[in-house]
Design a protein around this nucleic acid. Structure first.
Lengths: 217, 217
DNA sequence: AATCTTCTCCCTCAATTGAGGGATTGCATT
DNA sequence: AATGCAATCCCTCAATTGAGGGAGAAGATT
């Protein structure tokens, strides 16, 4: 029906006024068509099948099935559809959940129409779009989780020691480790002793704790 | 010297032709001034002090001190300066490193001048900017690290058990735990037994491993 | 009243672990 | 030749741990 390069967009949006505004913007812009607009996600499957969107513009705050759960459901059933979340809140937990649900972008509702159209085109071509403010939060989240793991000290463990430490962190007792890597029980114990000295710990649990927390394995 | 709202930009860029292009764009655009342009980061401190930038446009591939290390150094010395990394490569490891170094944005060199100016304004006002393609990679990285941690089973540990498990994961032996939380040694051992049953493990190291890997503590 | 859960305390026995000691081989560096 | 280091093996003793048993008190649920 549409020319090849028209991006087909479906809108899920609580507020009829916002929805009309979005629809007008889309239909008034060359290259974009709004093929469906819905005030709830309760019939999402039917609505998606009917409107065959390339990109879904999804409001996060909706009665019934909310935007994040709808994103999860749609992504599961139609993995090719790109979903752009729209929200008024810059809430860490929401961003987190939306990402986990498989959203391809996360923009604020005060985003200008031009930026919104750009964002739709970007996600359509495989990119992910964030408002700069949202991206800043994402990076903070990222650094909170990842950076502590990256900043690792080098304890100068030998290859054998690393190998044994890894088995220790799986919870394997030393007699079993000896069998596994074909060494005498005594030798394994000696290596473990050496590991403790190098990590400055005094027990297996402490070594495992340090190894996992500092990503030594 | 400049009007209040002029954004002062310093450029670190290997390639003199690219650098000239960037400088022309900046000085030709109202609201932006290029206060310094340098072909290496070897004198970064002096260069920064001289050019007093709000935003640094940083090439990632440079001889001597590379863009990522320079970012780390500048951020350490001048935390208020915002740094926008520019690169030709969409390399996971590089993005990762740049984020850890404290970069405020990461854009590709084929980004249009208009977008580049926007990005500079965005990072200047506290946002973080990514090309959609870069953002997509970041989200993939994010999901790889975070999602497995979020999908946690509930082992129905009681409060006491959680408390003791946490001390165990610090590597504390049971006699010490008993002293710490003012319980009899026997009682601590009983709780630990109970933890093992609920986590389906058979030793302290295994419990610690499971607790840390699945983020139970 | 009966049951369940949580939390508390105790005992025993065998296995595992931590800390100390000593010893040999092979390889690389000095 | 000498030194250092990783890797291997062994022994002992005391402490800790894992697995089994039993038991009581407080609180919630049925």
């Amino acid at each position: 029906m549409n020319a090849n390069k028209e991006i087909q967009v479906a809108i899920f949006e609580d507020n009829p006024i916002m929805m009309d505004a979005y629809r007008s913007i889309l239909n008034g812009s060359p290259g974009y068509t709004c093929t469906g607009s819905f005030t709830s996600c309760n019939n999402w499957k039917h609505d998606i099948e009917k409107s065959k969107p390339d990109v879904v513009l999804m409001d996060i705050e909706m009665a019934g099935i909310n935007g994040i759960n709808a994103t999860r459901l749609i992504k599961k059933e139609f993995p090719a559809i790109r979903i752009l979340i729209q929200t008024v809140f810059e809430d860490d937990a929401k961003i987190f959940e939306a990402l986990c649900a498989g959203a391809n972008g996360y923009i604020l509702k005060n985003t200008s129409p031009v930026k919104m159209l750009e964002a739709i085109a970007d996600v359509q071509s495989g990119g992910v779009v964030f408002n700069p403010a949202i991206a800043a939060k994402l990076v903070t989240l990222f650094q909170k989780f990842i950076v502590p793991m990256a900043a690792t000290v080098d304890y100068q463990l030998t290859e054998r020691e690393k190998e044994i430490l890894q088995l220790l962190t799986k919870g394997m007792p030393m007699p079993r480790i000896a069998e596994t890597i074909l060494l005498s029980y005594h030798t394994v114990r000696d290596h473990v002793k050496s590991i403790y000295h190098k990590l400055h710990v005094a027990s297996a649990t402490e070594a495992v704790s340090k190894a996992l927390r500092e990503n030594l394995v």
